[in-house]
């Protein structure tokens, strides 16, 4: 059994970490009024800390978070309009090709010149650039949406 009074660390260990507390410390506190008093004051402090009031929020956290999570939904009418425009564009393209089919067949079958190859190459090149640019701006926007 320890003859001197316990240090503060030992007393805290007895109160808050009893399973790791040595039997010497337990014996001392049980027999020493001074150390017992100190340990009781720690118990009092612990009780007071436990009963400290929780912070009260002056804003609705759930609403704020959910508002930021919900992405704006497109209006159904907008979706229909977009689909309509895409279908119409495809229809007009095929209709134009059908109407001018003779002209197109002449261009690509009868008189294949260097000029034709040049026009087709330029068209493919511009399409590639536009496609790449669209792909890049799409990912840029997606990354901006991520927080």
């Amino acid at each position: 059994m320890k003859i001197q009074h316990l240090c503060d660390k030992d007393i805290q260990e007895y109160i808050f970490d009893t399973s790791n507390c040595s039997s010497d410390i337990i014996e001392h506190i049980n027999s020493c009024e001074v150390c017992k008093k100190v340990s009781e004051s720690y118990l009092l402090l612990s009780g007071e800390l436990k009963s400290q009031p929780e912070p009260v929020l002056d804003f609705n956290l759930t609403k704020l978070v959910l508002d930021r999570l919900t992405l704006p939904k497109k209006e159904p009418i907008y979706n229909y309009l977009l689909s309509f425009i895409i279908i119409m564009s495809i229809g007009i393209t095929f209709f134009t090709i059908y109407i001018f089919r003779d002209v197109f067949s002449n261009i690509f079958s009868a008189n294949i010149t260097i000029l034709n190859y040049f026009i087709v190459s330029i068209t493919i090149l511009i399409s590639l650039f536009l496609g790449f640019d669209m792909y890049r701006s799409y990912y840029k926007k997606i990354n901006m949406l991520k927080y």
Partner: peptide, 28 residues
């Protein structure tokens, strides 16, 4: 400053003070 006497002295005073005043506010 682990001197047990000093600690006990301040401790008893603290305890009395805690009881005397609004303990929760002081602790906050």
């Amino acid at each position: 400053k682990i001197s047990i006497n000093t600690f006990c002295y301040s401790d008893n005073q603290t305890e009395a003070y805690i009881f005397k005043k609004e303990r929760s506010q002081i602790l906050t």
